[in-house]
C-alpha cells in the first residue's frame, strides 16, 4: 500500500536538500527562542547566543533575566524538540522500511506505550534516584518488549490491518497497565505528574536530560547514512534480500532495536508525542523518495523542524500558559493521517 506516490522526476542533489532543510530548521529554532510569553527581539537572541562564544565582542544590551530565559528555558526546550522530533521521525522512517509498511510508527506499533509503561512504573515506584541515564534505558526496555510482542503477534504477514491491530492491542494493554500502576501505587501528585508527562510536553526540558537521546540520535543518523545503502535491501522482498547477501530476519531485528532505542529515549524525556513518526517520513518520501541514504537524514531534519514548530505553536496559542507539543502534533497529524487513509481507500477503489 502506498500512501503518497512520489512524482517521477530528477531529484536535486542530496547536499542541496540537506542544506536547505538545515537552514529552515535553524530559522524555526531561532523563531522559537525569540517568541513566547516574553518576546525577545532577534538581535537580542543572536547576541545572547554569541556572547559566551566571543565574550567582549558583543554589547550586552539585555537584562540577565533575558539571557537566562534563552539559556535555561527556551534553548534547552528547542534543543529537546530538535532531538526528540528528529528521533521520532527517524524511528518512524526506519520502522516503515523494516516492516515495508507505510503505517508503521513508534506510536501505532505500541512501542511508545511500552516505553511509557516502564517509565511511569519507574517514576511511581520511586526509583527516581536512577536519574536521567536510567530513565531512557528503562524506556528502551519497555519499547523493545512491546515491539517484540507486536511482531510476534502479527508475524510478517505484510497485512497492514494485522500489524496496526496488534500495535493498538499492545498499546491498549500497556495503557491499562499504566492506569493500574497509577491506581494502586501513585501517591500525592504522582498520578498528575505521570499523566502530564504522558501528554507529551517539552516544558520540563533540561540540558542534562538531553545527553542520552542526543547521543542515540547522532549515532543513528550517522549509522543510517553509512549503512543506508544496505538498509535499502530491506525494501526488497525477503528472497531478493537473501540473494543479495543479507539475512533479512536478523537485519530487521537489529533495525528494530534501533527503532526502540530512538523511540524509547524520546518517550523517556518528552512523553507521548504522537504522529511525528508517522507523518514526517511520508513527507520525506515525497521529497526525496525511499532510498534510506536520503530518506533517513531528511526525515530527521523534517522531524526536528516539525516538533520545534509544534512546540512553538503550543506556546503561542495558549499564551501565557501552553499546550503540550504532543497535543499539537496529534491535532495536525491526526487529520493528515485520516486524509492519507482516504486517499489510499480511493486509490484501492
Amino acid at each position: 500500500m502506498t500512501v503518497l506516490v512520489g512524482v517521477v522526476r530528477r531529484r536535486p542533489p542530496l547536499v542541496f536538500t540537506l542544506l536547505a532543510l538545515t537552514a529552515a530548521v535553524v530559522a524555526v529554532c531561532v523563531l522559537a527562542v525569540s517568541l513566547g510569553s516574553v518576546w525577545l527581539p532577534l538581535g537580542h537572541v543572536w547576541g545572547i547566543l554569541a556572547e559566551p562564544l566571543v565574550p567582549g565582542l558583543v554589547d550586552v544590551t539585555w537584562s540577565p533575566v533575558r539571557a537566562s530565559i534563552v539559556w535555561d528555558s527556551r534553548l534547552p526546550r528547542v534543543a529537546m524538540a530538535v532531538v526528540v522530533g528528529a528521533a521520532l521521525a527517524l524511528a518512524g522512517a526506519i520502522a516503515q522500511i523494516v516492516t515495508r509498511n507505510p503505517l508503521a510508527d513508534p506510536y501505532l506499533l505500541g512501542v511508545s506505550q511500552g516505553a511509557g509503561l516502564t517509565v511511569s512504573l519507574t517514576m511511581v515506584l520511586g526509583v527516581g534516584v536512577l536519574g536521567f541515564v536510567a530513565l531512557p534505558a528503562v524506556a528502551f526496555v519497555g519499547a523493545l518488549a512491546a515491539l517484540l510482542v507486536v511482531l510476534a503477534v502479527s508475524g510478517r504477514s505484510g497485512s497492514v490491518n494485522v500489524l496496526v491491530l496488534a500495535g493498538l492491542a499492545v498499546g491498549q494493554v500497556c495503557g491499562a497497565g499504566l492506569s493500574l500502576v497509577l491506581f494502586l501505587h501513585a501517591k500525592g501528585d504522582q498520578a498528575k505528574q505521570v499523566l502530564f508527562w504522558l501528554a507529551g510536553g517539552l516544558g520540563d526540558a533540561r540540558w542534562d536530560a538531553l545527553a542520552v537521546p542526543a547521543v542515540v540520535l547522532v549515532l543513528s543518523v550517522l549509522g543510517g547514512i553509512v549503512a543506508g545503502w544496505r538498509i535499502n535491501l530491506l525494501h526488497a522482498e525477503d528472497d531478493a534480500a537473501t540473494a543479495l547477501g543479507v539475512n533479512p530476519r536478523r537485519f530487521r531485528l537489529v533495525m528494530l532495536v534501533g527503532v526502540s532505542l530512538l523511540a524509547g529515549t524520546s518517550v523517556a524525556v518528552a512523553g507521548g508525542i504522537g504522529f511525528v513518526g508517522l507523518i514526517v517520513p511520508h513527507a520525506a518520501t515525497f521529497l526525496v523518495g525511499s532510498d534510506a541514504r536520503r530518506l533517513l537524514p531528511v526525515s530527521a531534519l523534517l522531524g526536528a523542524g516539525f516538533l520545534v514548530g509544534a512546540d512553538l505553536l503550543g506556546r503561542l496559542l495558549a499564551a501565557p500558559s501552553e499546550l503540550p507539543a504532543g497535543v499539537i502534533t496529534s491535532a495536525i497529524g491526526g487529520p493528515l493521517f485520516i486524509l492519507m487513509l482516504l486517499r489510499t481507500r480511493r486509490r484501492m477503489g
Binding site: T2, V5, G6, I97, R100, N232, H235, A236, E237, D239, A240, A243, T285, G289, S290, D291
Partner: peptide, 10 residues
C-alpha cells in the same frame, strides 16, 4: 526472483 515486488519509492 520470479515476481519482483517494488513497494518503495526507489
Amino acid at each position: 526472483t520470479q515476481e519482483p515486488e517494488h513497494a518503495a519509492s526507489l
